[in-house]
Nucleic acid binder design. Structure first.
Lengths: 266, 266
DNA sequence: GAGTCGACTG
DNA sequence: CAGTCGACTC
């Protein structure tokens, strides 16, 4: 089973790339983020034409996630509320307004597709939102881990787990996506639940990136970040075959600033 | 000598069309309107690469005119003020803020390239501006007619001279571009000076258009207007060979809403 | 419907 | 730098 993640930075602007990529990389499920489109305008038909059903949770302009699957998914749900119950506690009741969470089950694997808030700048209001969102994610994942099946949590985490995941980490100690509080949140939210970073498990070397800023010719200089991840639950450990970054689409015309990452389970 | 006029609706968006058209229609001078770009950003080099020098008068977002010429032009000037003298009368001192007028001389022919205000809606403030602008144009053209050479006045006039120049004129009696006051202004400003509509002189039939609204599939229905004209002074009368509308570029991908018109002088 | 800009986000 | 939207113009 192959499960890929790709922040497409607008599904409408990137539709041709997604179609071309899926035709050459027939993964079972592609988790996309930043679809930036309301559900009514999501290009479902174009994806159905190449054999993929789209499960979507979109909003206007910002955010938006979708699961593109060759086989029907079961138990699909959107947002934290669907799992944690409604109403959420007052402090987190707003977190589902931004469409950043969708999940579904294929075979005996639950797939969670996340678009973690960017956080803007360390200490900003958006940064506090990001940390609050991650705290809620922990409860969400804990609930899903109670299910009797494997769990794959993937998406754009907007966090580089350690310095190997950043081009020239010196001086970025308090940069957004690398700050101690964000890394600690990732630890508490994901790793402490027993979930494992599949790519890092297999590839210990530094300098493997999934996102390159459009500005400053970052891709040409390979000045990237590894912020798109797959985390797998313990019971999937012995099914882990590989996890690879496909840098090719980042080099296409008018690309997304992210490139796909593919998890293969045996 | 061939002198063409084309409202390109953004020279930057239409650069490839203009280059392709000039390579297949090597006119001596192409008068373009609605360049929508400040002079610093006008794509002069791309036009020089195909043998055309650009004389430009641009502004941000709106309006903007240019003369693209294979041979150097003489006595190039921009705006009413350059001819009528500055300061203009107080009632018209603002008319050169919008870049709608450029002129130059090739051989013994003065070419005036105009982008007449659209006027928005009959009776509106913009409509009054259009009529005021046309009144000033009369003085401008009278001055130029004193020069001892032929005069070609072309561009986007945003006026259909008579009902043959409108698809289904019924009900458009007081439509912008067809209202009596606009037609009268065209008569007073241009025709009463002895200038002749070159296209109409040679082609009396109705239904020959140069502009089709992007909306309502106007081009497919041929629901157009003839609002792009060449007016020639009496001394050029016996040099008039032809005046033709080239509808082809209106059918290209992502076209301007106007198509070129070519005047040929012997 | 298609071009522009400016504000916003990443 | 690249995507979105909303306001504006034609």
């Amino acid at each position: 089973m192959k499960i890929a993640t790709w922040n497409v930075n607008s599904i409408r602007s990137r539709l041709a790339h997604v179609v071309e990529w899926l035709e050459n990389q027939p993964v079972d499920v592609l988790c996309v983020q930043e679809t930036k489109v309301v559900d009514a305008d999501f290009p479902k038909a174009d994806l159905e034409a190449i054999g993929y059903t789209a499960y979507i949770s979109g909003q206007k302009s910002y955010n938006g996630v979708a699961l593109l699957s060759r086989e029907p998914l079961e138990s699909v749900s959107m947002g934290f509320t669907s799992v944690l119950g409604s109403p959420l506690a007052e402090t987190i009741a707003d977190l589902d307004e931004q469409k950043r969470v969708i999940t579904g089950v294929l075979g005996n694997v639950r797939i969670v597709n996340l678009y973690v808030p960017n956080g803007s700048a360390v200490g900003s209001e958006k940064y506090e939102y990001k940390l609050r969102w991650l705290a809620t994610l922990r409860d969400y994942l804990k609930s899903l881990l109670l299910e009797d099946q494997g769990l794959v949590v993937c998406g754009d985490f907007n966090i580089a787990p350690d310095d190997r995941d950043i081009y020239k980490p010196e001086g970025k100690e308090n940069h957004i996506m690398a700050s101690p509080a964000e890394r600690q949140a990732l630890q508490t939210t994901v790793l402490d639940l027993g979930l494992v970073d599949a790519f890092r498990q297999l590839h210990p070397e530094a300098g493997q990136f999934t996102w390159w800023d459009y500005r400053t010719a970052a891709f040409r200089r390979d000045a990237g970040w590894r912020i798109d991840h797959h985390y797998i639950s313990p019971q999937l450990g012995d099914r882990l075959v590989d996890c690879v970054i496909d840098k090719v689409p980042r080099g296409w015309e008018k690309p997304s600033d992210h490139t796909p990452v593919i998890l293969e389970l045996g």
